[in-house]
């Protein structure tokens, strides 16, 4: 006679309640939500993973891979990394980019261009001068952009996991 097996039942009371503060902290800094919940090791791993991917993207393609004006669709994904992504974009747009002398639009420098400190416009520099930032092109730009965007996508998973914690995890609060 076959032995009957009872499927494991799901008890809704096992599910921890939603934790919106942890979700907000995870948005502000990757891993902070799990740290707040007392899951320090998990916080270090997810924070190191997300920020490691984001800054690796910047290292590979340069800061040019985070550009909310020129690569807006990619920036939507990168923005989920949090204020770090917005601060990076702010520095890129307002500190490193300059004004085109003809159109007045903000843009990256061409080779041998330097920024005029008074007007903020790009001007031709002396021979051998180096612009403050280089435009990244080709594979390095693609791979760097991919790194930074995947970091944002992963942080979305981290935010959801912090805000809606799984059952069976050690928690400091609400025990």
């Amino acid at each position: 006679m076959p032995e009957t097996m009872t499927p494991p039942s799901f008890d809704a009371s096992d599910q921890p309640p939603m934790d919106p503060l942890a979700g907000i902290l995870a948005v502000l800094l990757p891993g902070a939500g799990h740290w707040y919940q007392g899951q320090v090791r998990r916080a270090l791993l997810v924070g190191g993973g997300v920020l490691g991917l984001f800054f690796s993207g910047l290292l590979i393609g340069g800061i040019d891979v985070v550009d909310s004006r020129q690569d807006r669709l990619w920036f939507f994904g990168q923005a989920i990394v949090g204020p770090v992504a917005f601060a990076t974009d702010y520095v890129h747009q307002n500190v490193l980019k300059g004004l085109d002398p003809t159109t007045g639009q903000r843009r990256s420098p061409l080779p041998n261009e330097v920024k005029d400190p008074d007007s903020g416009r790009w001007v031709a520099g002396p021979a051998g001068s180096v612009p403050p930032v280089s435009k990244s092109l080709g594979k390095m730009n693609e791979i760097g952009t991919l790194y930074a965007t995947i970091a944002g996508m992963l942080n979305l998973i981290v935010i959801i996991d912090a805000a809606f914690p799984s059952a069976g995890r050690v928690r400091r609060r609400g025990a």
């Binding site: 590979i60 393609g61 930032v133 280089s134 990244s136 594979k139 390095m140 693609e142």
Partner: peptide, 12 residues
């Protein structure tokens, strides 16, 4: 670092 892209176009 972080201002110029890496020159690894062949080993991407």
């Amino acid at each position: 670092p972080f201002f110029d892209p890496l020159d690894l176009h062949r080993q991407w």
